[in-house]
Amino acid sequence: MRPGLARLLRRDGTEVGYGWAYLDETAKREVRRALLKAVAVPGHQVPFASREMPVARGWGSGGLQVTLSVITPDDVLKVIDQGADDSMNAAALRDLVSRTTGVRATTDAREATLIQTRHRVPEDDLHEGQVLVFQVPIADPLRVVDSRPSVTRRLHADRDYAAVWLYLYEDHARTGQSSFTHSHPVEVERGYVMSPTPIPRFDLPRLDRAPFLALFGAGREATVYAVPPYTRVEPLAFADRPFEPERFDGPCALCGAADTYLVEDDSAEEPRWVCSDTDHCRRRREAAR
């Protein structure tokens, strides 16, 4: 807010000058239609008319459009960036959604009904009725195989995924392991192969038959896709080269958790490994006190 400009708020706390939830109703309806199709055909990439947003494309504009299209006044919102609620990007997106809808925001994944996330699944056990909105930089898992959408669309239509298997084969033949550290392609309900967005391999098992609804929005690529609750999500892996999530040498340096996804914290004197989910980590430390 520029200094000197009075901030005009409605009685419900939302900003005057914008429609409810920022987007116009036609835009929201269009995104919802695309999402309905996406939910009906799990893992299938559905095009939508990605609008200009007040964040740059590639900075969560897709996730934001999905969030703004599905949010209701009763929702409780959580926004995370790589597991953190307080990063610049997460805070700005949360602020935008709150100010144009007036919905309550939280950092606690257990009480949130709508969670917009960049590249993580919260550590808490999520439950039915919750919606996760993933920000997607590259929607097509076949991009590594062929950069032409005209080609990859046909491959998806034919369920022709030999090229992805070849990619995995080449990894194993040349280096003895898979080179997917993130965005490891998954097969959704034995049908389409889908990119789970750059969430770490650690989070993939938690998408499988998960109770929550997962919506994926790629603003730059104007694509949405979805995984409905209790849908099978299986990482592609050879029968004799099983999929392996990341492993860590020790527990979180802050809360001592040994079952969470850790990231290197280089802001401390000595580099150390700490939980990527900051709120979960904070609650564990408070409970221990």
Partner: peptide
Amino acid sequence: ELGVTAGGNVAARLFAAGWRSYGESR
């Protein structure tokens, strides 16, 4: 695929036919 290994080029056919074992394909 010229950028792909000789073994991979052969294995790709096996994957197209539904093979899902690295060892057997290799």
